[in-house]
């Protein structure tokens, strides 16, 4: 692997008595679209602002393109970092036109051409003479993106880029953003609190928790193989069972799993609802007690023989209704050691 274009290591920041960043480390490979995702207050925006240079670090280093930006001795100001930034509320300059906004960071004689080029890229070629307050939320968003891309940075940072858009706009903008970023050939880091958004848009998802990275990986990998129950629960719905390994077998209320974990280990088994396949069977002891039909799939609430309740996501072509008795098949499962949750597969 080549050297990462952004590298943050052991970054720490404290506000009064809370630690916003606490040993945060992240390497971003060239050309990747990375989603930094975590619950609100986990420090993800602080991390982004530290990379951009708006947040001083108490400790740690930041380097971009192999050049040190922040260390004990160095602190390169934001205007010298050549990093584009798209702000959550867009932060367009209200007193100048769209074209002037976009051209603000471009120097040299090429300015007019470059402004036209980026506006065209974001699909707003005709909007140059308008003012920010005359634009819709989605248009402002695209201007903000164009403005960040105009000086031809090789890195763009986006802070909650979709949070001010309504649901249908959000989905369209998500696809568009991906295309624009690809077309501009930049490395992008975006911050979001929405895990489904992160999984949908990114090449690499970095899950953040309490000021540090909990897990980094491709979307399917972090979803299928979370490192701990917390990450598992954060990235999607999870059904959890406590159990103990007995001679290579883990018993769960919905079936047994083979395992190479040593006997006697206390484990926690995590199953995604869509990994559970209920099949109608008159003699079975599990019973469907509620359903919700979504169209593309359906949710079934299943009460087990021992009285516990689990959820399964079932393809919509499966006929399933309240009162059915079902046997359950496990398509996949993740096993965590209850003593040291990270590490088991």
């Amino acid at each position: 692997m080549t050297t990462p274009i952004i590298s943050v290591s052991d970054a720490s920041v404290s506000f009064d008595d809370t630690r916003a960043l606490d040993g945060f480390s992240l390497d971003v490979p060239v050309g990747a679209l990375v989603a930094l995702v975590g619950p609100s207050g986990c420090g993800k925006t602080t991390a982004l602002r530290a990379i951009a240079g708006f947040q001083d670090l108490d400790a740690g280093t930041v380097s971009i393109r192999g050049e040190t930006m922040v260390s004990d001795k160095i602190n390169v100001p934001p205007e010298k970092r050549r990093v584009g930034m798209v702000f959550q509320e867009y932060a367009l300059f209200p007193h100048i036109s769209v074209a002037e906004n976009v051209g603000y960071g471009v120097r040299g004689s090429d300015r007019v051409r470059r402004v036209a080029e980026v506006l065209d890229l974001v699909g707003l070629a005709e909007y140059g003479s308008r003012f920010p307050n005359e634009l819709s939320g989605g248009e402002q968003q695209r201007v903000a993106l164009a403005r960040a891309l105009a000086p031809e940075p090789d890195v763009v940072l986006l802070d909650e880029p979709f949070s001010n858009l309504d649901a249908p706009q959000r989905e369209r903008m998500r696809r568009e953003l991906k295309h624009i970023i690809r077309a501009a050939r930049v490395t992008a880091v975006l911050v979001t609190h929405d895990q489904s958004e992160a999984l949908a848009i990114a090449d690499i998802v970095a899950v953040m928790r309490s000021g540090r990275i909990a897990q980094v990986g491709a979307p399917p990998d972090v979803y299928r193989s979370p490192v701990d129950p917390w990450v598992a629960g954060f990235l999607g719905d999870a059904v959890m069972f406590d159990s103990t390994v007995v001679e290579g077998v883990i018993e769960t209320p919905i079936g047994d799993l083979d395992s190479d974990v040593p006997s006697g280990t206390d484990v926690q088994v995590m199953v995604r609802p869509e990994w559970i396949r209920p099949v109608q069977s008159p003699t079975a002891s599990a019973c469907v007690t509620d359903t919700e039909f979504y169209g593309h799939d359906q949710r079934a609430e299943i009460t087990l023989a021992d009285g516990s309740v689990i959820e399964a996501m079932v393809p919509s072509i499966d006929a399933i209704k309240v009162g059915d008795t079902v046997t359950l098949t496990l398509l996949d499962a993740v096993v965590f050691d209850r003593k040291e949750p990270a590490g088991l597969a």
Partner: peptide
């Protein structure tokens, strides 16, 4: 911040 990140 936007102005700073644009190199000013």
């Amino acid at each position: 911040d936007a102005s700073r990140s644009l190199g000013r």
